[in-house]
Structures are given as structure tokens and as C-alpha cells.
Amino acid sequence: MTREEAEKIVYIAISIGEELLASSAEVSRVEDTVTRILQAYGATRADVFSITSSLEVTAHFGDFNTVTQTRRIRSINTDMAMLEALNGLSRMICSAEPRMTPEEALVRFKKIREETKAAAESRSASLQMLGYAVVSGSFTVFFGGDMADCIAGAVIGVILKLIESALGKVMTNRLLIAFIWSFAGGLLAHFFVAFGLGHHSDLISIGNIMLFIPGIAFTNSIRDLFYGDTITGLIRFCESVILAITIAVGFTAAGLIM
């Protein structure tokens, strides 16, 4: 195998791995997927190492023909449709006979990425907002709120999402953003109750917290620790605990000044 071919193969494998990580796949799954793709293309050895923010791959194609590439992952967005589509692609790459060429795989990968992102964006406007409203409202009821609390929770959930995305465009610090919108969420809950829409500002806030709490990141972190991905596990554990505390403090701090 020529050097160029080897580089193409590693490129496609690491691109899929990077996108998987950025869509919040588990580290062990990413390492596993990248290794499988490389082996399917005839790598004699694949050394894949990943933490949540970085992915590095060295593939061996016989002696002396080794290729190393690394990627830095800067932001993680949970996108289940993307995970699903990429999972399908990697399965196809590993099982299709005759083997898909790296060029073809890259074309398919780009197509999936664009289509899934476009689909997510076109849905995000209306359907996403509905999702946020449904989650906030139903968890307000779940923890004991009444019908008025449910409506207030749903409305605040949507407003908070709008604030969050607006803040994301002007600021980069995740924790500061989280504190500002959760503080706003706490204030809104008190305002709504003061104006008679809703009766329990604490339950409305809890419903909203359920929406934004990093539950996936936390669960994944424990799983990573159990699987032996200790560094990733600890990073995610600290990140999710600090974020969860920031959000909860933001919501409750609003109650102090009211």
C-alpha cells in the first residue's frame, strides 16, 4: 500500500471518529469504531487513543508504513441522528464487499454530515422549541407542580433556550453562560409566580433544571471510569458536576434577591 492510500484511510477513519466524539459518543465507542475501520482497510495494527477533547490515531500498514493523525475536538453537541447515521456508515464500511474506496467513504461521510446537520437545523427552529417546552413542562408536573406551573415551566424553558443560544454567540465561557441563563430562569420563575401564572417557583425551576442538567455527560463519565478510560471519565465527571452545580446555584441565587 502506498503512503498516499494509507493517509487517505487514516483521514477517513479519524474524520468519522471526530464527528462521533463531537456528537457526544462514548470514548470507548469512538476508539472501537476507528479501530474497526482501520482494520477493515487492512491496517496491521491500529493505536487509537481518545479523550473527550482530542483524538489521535496511528495506523500501521506493514512495517515502516505508519501514519499518525490527530484531531482536537472543541465543542460537543448531543446529536443522536448523527450518531446513528455515522454508526450505519462505519458498519457499511466494515462489512461491504468489495470494500468501499476511501474516496467513496469520504463522499458518503460528507453527505451524511451535511444532511444530518441541515436536518437538525431545519427542525431546530420549531420542533426543538416544542421539545424544550415539553420537557420543562412535564418535569414540572413530574415533581408535583400543577397545570399553571406546567405552562409557566414550558414557557420559561423555551425562553431559556433562546437566551442560551443568544449568549453562545457573544460569549465563550460555558460556565458563565450557564450561570447567566439559569439566574435568568430563576428570576423568570419568581416573576411568573408573582404575576399569578404558576404557584411553585421552585418546582418550575426544577423542571427547567432537568432540561439542562448534564445527565448524559455524568452517566458517560461513570461509564468511562468503569471501562478504564480514567482520564476521560475524570474530565467529564468534573465538568458535569461543576456545570450542574453552576446551573442549580444560578436558579437558586435568583431566589435570594427576590
Binding site: A25, E26, R29, T78, M80, L83, E84, N87, G88, F139, F142, F143, D202, S205, I206, I209, M210, I213, G215, I216, T219, N220, A244, I245, A248, V249, F251, T252, G255
Partner: peptide
């Protein structure tokens, strides 16, 4: 034919102790 984590995440959401976290910080 969907990654299991998708179902794990959406199904276990009701169990997440969000209320306890809120009350603790409060």
C-alpha cells in the same frame, strides 16, 4: 439498529435527581 446510548439517555431521564440537586444548592 440504533446505538443503545440513545435509548439509555431518553429512558433514564426521569430517574435523574434534579430536584435533590436544586434543593441542595438552595
Amino acid at each position: 439498529k440504533t446505538p443503545a446510548i440513545i435509548y439509555v439517555v431518553v429512558s433514564t431521564v426521569p430517574l435523574i435527581p434534579g430536584a435533590a440537586l436544586y434543593r441542595s444548592m438552595n
